[in-house]
Simulated assay, not measured.
Amino acid sequence: MVNYYEVLEVHYEVSTDDLKRSFRTLIKKYHPDIHGQNKLWAESKTKTIIQAYKTLSDSTSRKHYDRQYRHLLHTNSKQKPRKRTETAASSEDAIQEHVRIIFTDLLNGNIHHATNNYEHLLKNYAGIDFCIYLNKRDYIDCKFLLAEAFEKLERYDTAINLYELILERGKSDTHRSHLLHEIKERMRNIYCRNLARNAPPEKALSYYEKVLRLNLYKNENAFIYKKIAECYLKLKEYEDALQHLTLALTLKPNLQGAQKLKTKLKQHISNFAI
């Protein structure tokens, strides 16, 4: 049975919106027209991606798939030779110890050892959920430290996925709102400083749109709208650039750098007025 979560490169708790974004990214990445001699492979890959998305994007079929997949894992484990009944329990103990070692390494700043162990654990135990082996507070702290570690190692996609998971798990925890705000700021910085800055304008737009979905403060959103306007200007889509610059100035009339953008847009829009 194919692991559709792995096919779509998402966590099994992925939201519908993130599932759709990942699907669109992968469809573009594996489109047969851009793979030349590997066109047949790309077509097969694309079909699998489409099937995975169709299954997981529908809540009913996703629940059915999850039940089937859990049943398969359970059946496979029963078919293995039984040396002794303590095997399952000892395996659970080993996983818990492994999780604790990862958490301890993170607390002590041993990020290379921790991230290597983390990826090794995920490889051996697909779909493992740390919340089973840690209390809620330690779980959030462990995931946060993991995200921070991957960010330091410039593994930004992995860091973002972990930060998003914490936001989803912690959104009902009013006692840790300061942590959730810090995570949003870190995600904003990754998108703006590490990913969008050196990306082509088409890709940068997708990063800035993700920042807007974080629902940050008004001044921060004004800055993002200005950056989006700059992207559209580079793409020579002047009306879209004007629209987003207008949104930016609505939020912050004295926005730094806006005048320079106005001057450039006046050269391309005859009835320019802002």
Rank of each mutant, 00 (worst) to 15 (best):
N116Q: 10
Y118L: 07
E151R: 15
I111M: 10
G109W: 06
K171C: 03
D93F: 04
L167T: 05
S177P: 00
N124C: 06
A114N: 04
H175E: 07
A114D: 01
A114H: 09
E97W: 07
K152A: 03
P81I: 12
R169Y: 11
I101Q: 11
R169I: 08
A114L: 03
N108P: 00
H181K: 13
T115C: 08
L106K: 07
N135F: 01
I102K: 08
N124S: 07
Y125G: 00
A147R: 13
R100D: 03
K152Q: 15
P81A: 12
E86T: 15
I166Q: 07
A126S: 13
G170S: 09
N108W: 00
K152W: 04
A126M: 07
L167K: 13
N124F: 06
L165Y: 08
I160W: 04
E148F: 10
D138C: 01
T174F: 12
P81V: 12
Q96T: 06
D157N: 14
R82E: 09
I132K: 14
L145Q: 10
D138T: 01
L122K: 15
Y125Q: 13
A149Q: 07
I95G: 02
A88F: 04
I166P: 05
S90T: 09
I111E: 03
Y156W: 14
E97A: 09
L146P: 11
L162Y: 15
K136N: 01
I183T: 10
K171H: 09
T158I: 15
K171M: 08
E168F: 11
L145P: 01
I102T: 04
T115H: 08
A89P: 00
R137Y: 02
C142F: 02
V99K: 05
N110R: 15
H175P: 00
A126G: 04
K143T: 04
T104F: 02
Y163N: 02
H120W: 06
E97G: 06
N116D: 09
E97N: 11
K184V: 02
S91L: 13
Y163P: 01
I101A: 05
R100T: 03
A159V: 05
H181P: 00
L146D: 07
I140S: 02
E119Q: 15
H178Q: 09
S90C: 00
T87G: 01
F144C: 01
L153E: 15
D93M: 12
E97L: 09
L121M: 15
K152H: 14
R137S: 05
P81M: 06
R137T: 11
F103T: 03
N110Q: 14
T115G: 02
N108R: 12
R84A: 09
E154I: 08
T85F: 14
E154H: 14
I111F: 12
I128Q: 10
T104W: 01
T87K: 11
K123E: 13
F130N: 07
K184Q: 12
D138Y: 03
T87E: 12
H120G: 00
R137C: 00
R186W: 05
A88R: 14
F103G: 00
N108G: 00
K143R: 14
H113K: 13
L162A: 06
N117P: 00
V99R: 11
